[in-house]
Design a protein around this nucleic acid. Structure first.
Lengths: 348, 348
DNA sequence: ACTTGGATAGAAAGCGCTTGCTGCAACGCT
DNA sequence: AGCGTTGCAGCAAGCGCTTTCTATCCAAGT
């Protein structure tokens, strides 16, 4: 049926053990023998049986990448960067690993299930990207699962997610709080005093941190926040559109709208325009992440750039054991304020 | 060390065979026994060893999803839809499969390598999304690889990619040619006679088909095309920006720019604006795909909507054997012209 | 010339699971 | 009462690889 190691061995007139060693390159094999084996492999078009070798070697070459929403470039960019470092194809030869990205859709259950699936596959490493859900039971379950994975030898890396002290996982965290604060301070510096905030879904670390940064900026400048100025929604444009309309309804005198991310900001822009308001003359808008399309908004979006690709690449390297983890296993990745046309001084 | 089937069997006082059967649910087991086993599984926190079971059963629960660019929502949307149908988490219990998306970056070698990796893992199915590279040797290599995978029992589905007759793979193809034609006809109908075209990378089916549609429309209306009106580039905004500048340099009298996709169109819009031209008053712009952000361009982008999520979902179901393949194994998915603000009658 | 040791290659014992086949009650039939 | 069924459970033989341990060969050491 399918070609096996034994077939190759027979053809190359060596033992299966030798073929295995040639293929793994972890044991001295005479050059002439090696060549004979490789020729046989080629002639028979042999492909190693992954499951069998994983079973025997008790290690697999799978690396899992968990993302909240694969259709969102925020995750796509990170996943792409991680995967390209994982090696798989494109990486240097040798450790050819299969970087697989799994889309949780932001659902806690799916997150856990994927982790189990990866555990079942005995994944070599797992990278979790983006914010975490802040539900206590779920966090406990996650921590337990991660610990179990780690105990089984799976390397765990968090990319753009807060540290999980209990699990000892390496974490590259985005400084969402700092970025949010800086962004709002920029707006305050421009003269804004009544700022609406469109937050992401509740019970999410990213949502909370960005909002905290926003509020910290307000507090630092003695601006008392009106509870009506905050609306929660999803991380998509539609949600931004609706939330903006709601914000405008609650307080038409707002002079700025800060969005949880760029997609939401785009929706906000659309809603403002549809309401006959000009940006930034009537209302300033700010996003977060600086995804590629943000610069194409009209006017271009003021936002906080997160080095997604760089962070992803680093996370990938750490997951592969090709880069030293940061001291303490935790590193904070800062964002950079990008001031563009969507923010300006308020009227009057 | 780690818990094995045998441990569970011992604890439940049954044979390993029985545990396996309970877990797979493909053999009658007395209810009381089943319950005892499940309790033991739970108590020991047992997780099946994937490689071992794949080896023994000669089947795996991996399903590969190949995409050209994971950071591009075009692929992200399809991949998400496919993955959610693959089941994995979220799907109904039972056939819990791991849908893994692999990012080829549009590179032929990586595409092939991923296929080999999936073959090595004995993937249950593989879905290839998006356009194919039109290099003859590579196509032959791909066909051979796909055939081999198919022979090994892996189901192959092409989503948004032209059929590959040699391989007998199921194909859900986008009607890029038809969409391109319709789009350009819309522009011609508006009165445009000098249309620039920003094509995607050469040697790509998607690029060629869209361009052919564009040219067919021109030909059908007796418009002779100036070779200077076509520029090739990548499928990203940057490329669209540069190509537009080039187009303008070559022929400043163009009244419309048709882009290979929405991202490119966005770049085109930016270039036009930066050149002091208004859209659509001075120059009309059209994209392709209708990605979520297209409606947020200012003015909103005229484009062709491709039912990415629907097609992906269907491809996923077919890959899982949960839906009948289309008759003949090939289905054409049409796009829908979305006329919006970025296209209008030319000046004068 | 004889021992020693380095360099290769082979034999064989699993890795943890699945599954065809066998075993054995309890059951219903004539 | 005798016997074929039916329903469950266990035995044991692998699945295709890796890896430890052993065997062999030859160059070098004394």
């Amino acid at each position: 049926m399918t070609v096996t190691l034994a077939d190759v061995a027979a053809r190359a007139q060596v033992s299966p053990a030798t073929v295995s060693r040639v293929l793994n390159g972890n044991y001295p094999v005479a050059a002439s023998t090696r060549e004979r084996v490789l020729r046989a492999v080629d002639e028979l078009d042999y492909v190693l049986n992954g499951p069998a070798s994983a079973l025997a070697a008790a290690t697999s070459d799978l690396v899992g990448i968990l993302v909240n929403d694969i259709a969102d470039p925020f995750f796509g960019i990170m996943a792409g960067a991680i995967q390209s470092e994982i090696g798989g194809p494109g990486g240097r030869a040798g450790g050819e690993r299969l970087g697989v990205v799994c889309n949780t859709g932001g659902s806690p259950e799916r997150e856990l299930t994927y982790l189990t699936l990866l555990q079942r596959q005995r994944a070599a490493a797992v990278v979790l990207t983006g914010g975490a859900v802040e539900d206590a039971p779920h966090q406990a379950a996650m921590a337990a699962k991660l610990r179990k994975l780690a105990d089984a030898g799976t390397r765990i890396v968090l990319c753009g997610r807060p540290p999980s002290p209990e699990t000892g996982a390496i974490a590259l965290t985005f400084d969402n709080r700092g970025g949010g604060k800086e962004l709002t301070e920029h707006l305050i510096g421009l003269g804004h005093r009544r700022l609406g905030y469109i937050a992401g879904p509740e019970e999410r670390t990213t949502t909370r941190h960005r909002l905290e940064g926003h509020r910290a900026a307000l507090a630092a400048h003695g601006i008392e926040e009106d509870p009506r100025w905050t609306v929660h929604g999803r991380y998509d444009r539609r949600s931004g559109y609706e939330a903006t309309l709601e914000l405008l309804r609650r307080d038409p005198s707002l002079t700025a709208v800060v969005a949880a991310n760029d997609s939401v900001a785009l929706g906000a822009c659309a809603a403002l325009r549809d309401s006959g308001l000009r940006i930034p003359d009537d209302v300033s808008v700010a996003g977060f992440d600086d995804l590629p399309f943000s610069i194409d908004a009209v006017p271009a979006l003021t936002t906080v750039r997160l080095p997604l690709a760089e962070a992803g690449a680093r996370a990938g390297r750490i997951a592969m054991g090709r880069e030293e983890p940061p001291p303490g296993g935790i590193a904070t990745v800062r964002g950079e304020l990008m001031v563009r046309g969507s923010s300006g001084a308020p009227r009057g």
